Simulated assay, not measured.
Amino acid sequence: MRRLLAINPWFYLFGLALLAVALAAQQYRLFERAWFTVQEWQHGEQWRERSLWLGDYRVVIEAKPIGDISDVSALTFDPDRHSLFSVTNKPARVIELSLEGDLKRTIDLQGFGDPEAIEYVAPGTYVIADEREQRLVKVRIDDATRVLDAADYQQLSLGIGLNGNKGFEGLAYDAANHRLLVAKERDPVRIFEVLGFPHVDEGKPLALHVNTDPKRDARLFVRDLSSLDFDAATGHLLALSDESRLVIELDAEGKPISTLSLLPGQHGLRRGVPQAEGVASDDAGNLYLISEPNLFYLFRKQGD
């Protein structure tokens, strides 16, 4: 009897350790991620033929500093200018980059509290997301633009589940279906589908719809969302998570089909991406990432 009493505390400690591991696995979505790895291995060949298939990408430019810039957030590709755009919030600016990560110019932002994302939607037209206010602002940018004042442009405030700086973190635009996809960072992770903004045809009345897809969002085995990107060629969505160190490719039904890990040793990375904040793809299938404070990455598919 005494021997049993002496052993029992170890069982309690072992049980607590197992509970801690289970809670950590749940928090970091390790079970879902492990199950996806099995599916990726089983169905990889059929998915590879009709997707971006992120597993085939390798880094070409790694951790290149972007000039005298800090606090970068979000990324979008402009097919007309063949350049990339991002935003910073300290100070609030839009920055334009070359496809090699060189700084081309900066544009001051006025009337924006916490700009966290920018998205190309049409020639010269972009949407900027203000995180804390959950506000979307349609702006125009041309060669002469040096300042953008939010008061001058069309705006939409959603105010869905406001919780400080865990609001809008990423934007993506599906031009064929006029869908603006908006990522809520966390608590909980959500992707909203906004139809009717930006208002493209001024001759027609405004018809605004905001949709959600709980099943798709539940499949996102990530702790947060930092950025989104829509690939028109495949109709697939890329979702970037800083805390999970991962880019996930989702098919048209919202199912994960491939991933790109941002950990050291993966996809040719010598070091892990420290704080991934933006992802974008171009019309040639190249993949671009930026990371705080001002690091630029270019990934290309093997053989391309």
Results as ranks from 00 to 15, higher is better:
residue 120 Y to M: 09
residue 25 A to E: 08
residue 102 D to C: 10
residue 98 S to M: 01
residue 118 I to Y: 00
residue 123 P to I: 07
residue 36 F to W: 12
residue 142 D to L: 15
residue 83 S to K: 13
residue 84 L to T: 09
residue 24 A to I: 13
residue 29 R to M: 04
residue 37 T to M: 09
residue 90 K to H: 15
residue 129 A to R: 10
residue 83 S to V: 14
residue 44 G to P: 00
residue 31 F to M: 05
residue 80 D to F: 02
residue 43 H to C: 01
residue 86 S to V: 09
residue 84 L to Q: 10
residue 45 E to R: 00
residue 82 H to C: 01
residue 62 E to H: 07
residue 42 Q to Y: 01
residue 51 S to A: 14
residue 58 R to G: 05
residue 145 T to C: 15
residue 34 A to W: 11
residue 60 V to W: 00
residue 48 R to A: 06
residue 36 F to Y: 08
residue 34 A to D: 02
residue 79 P to K: 06
residue 50 R to M: 06
residue 67 G to R: 05
residue 67 G to M: 14
residue 90 K to Q: 15
residue 46 Q to I: 07
residue 86 S to I: 08
residue 55 G to R: 10
residue 33 R to G: 12
residue 64 K to H: 00
residue 80 D to N: 08
residue 88 T to N: 07
residue 84 L to V: 12
residue 130 D to H: 08
residue 31 F to L: 13
residue 21 V to H: 05
residue 66 I to C: 04
residue 121 V to N: 03
residue 29 R to Q: 10
residue 131 E to W: 08
residue 113 G to N: 11
residue 131 E to F: 06
residue 100 E to C: 05
residue 41 W to L: 05
residue 48 R to Q: 05
residue 81 R to N: 11
residue 67 G to W: 13
residue 33 R to Y: 11
residue 89 N to P: 03
residue 144 A to N: 15
residue 147 V to I: 13
residue 61 I to S: 07
residue 115 P to E: 06
residue 111 G to V: 04
residue 101 G to Q: 00
residue 90 K to S: 15
residue 113 G to P: 01
residue 111 G to M: 08
residue 132 R to K: 13
residue 110 Q to M: 09
residue 29 R to K: 10
residue 102 D to L: 07
residue 106 T to F: 10
residue 91 P to S: 11
residue 36 F to G: 09
residue 138 K to H: 05
residue 81 R to T: 13
residue 96 E to Y: 14
residue 51 S to V: 00
residue 88 T to V: 08
residue 36 F to R: 03
residue 147 V to L: 07
residue 137 V to C: 03
residue 36 F to S: 06
residue 144 A to K: 15
residue 41 W to D: 02
residue 131 E to H: 02
residue 121 V to F: 03
residue 74 A to S: 15
residue 121 V to M: 05
residue 105 R to S: 13
residue 136 L to V: 07
residue 118 I to W: 00
residue 136 L to C: 02
residue 115 P to N: 04
residue 121 V to S: 01
residue 52 L to P: 02
residue 57 Y to V: 00
residue 29 R to P: 08
residue 29 R to T: 08
residue 122 A to M: 05
residue 27 Q to F: 14
residue 72 V to H: 08
residue 46 Q to W: 03
residue 126 Y to L: 11
residue 112 F to E: 05
residue 118 I to H: 05
residue 41 W to E: 00
residue 92 A to N: 06
residue 132 R to C: 07
residue 132 R to H: 09
residue 95 I to F: 13
residue 137 V to M: 06
residue 61 I to L: 07
residue 31 F to C: 04
residue 147 V to E: 06
residue 149 D to T: 10
residue 35 W to D: 12
residue 114 D to Q: 07
residue 73 S to K: 02
residue 79 P to A: 03
residue 137 V to T: 09
residue 28 Y to D: 03
residue 101 G to I: 06
residue 144 A to M: 13
residue 21 V to W: 11
residue 149 D to E: 13
residue 34 A to V: 07
residue 143 D to Y: 12
residue 24 A to S: 14
residue 107 I to C: 14
residue 63 A to F: 06
residue 74 A to F: 02
residue 32 E to T: 06
residue 98 S to E: 08
residue 118 I to K: 01
residue 56 D to E: 10
residue 44 G to R: 02
residue 30 L to Y: 01
residue 94 V to E: 12
residue 142 D to P: 15
residue 82 H to P: 03
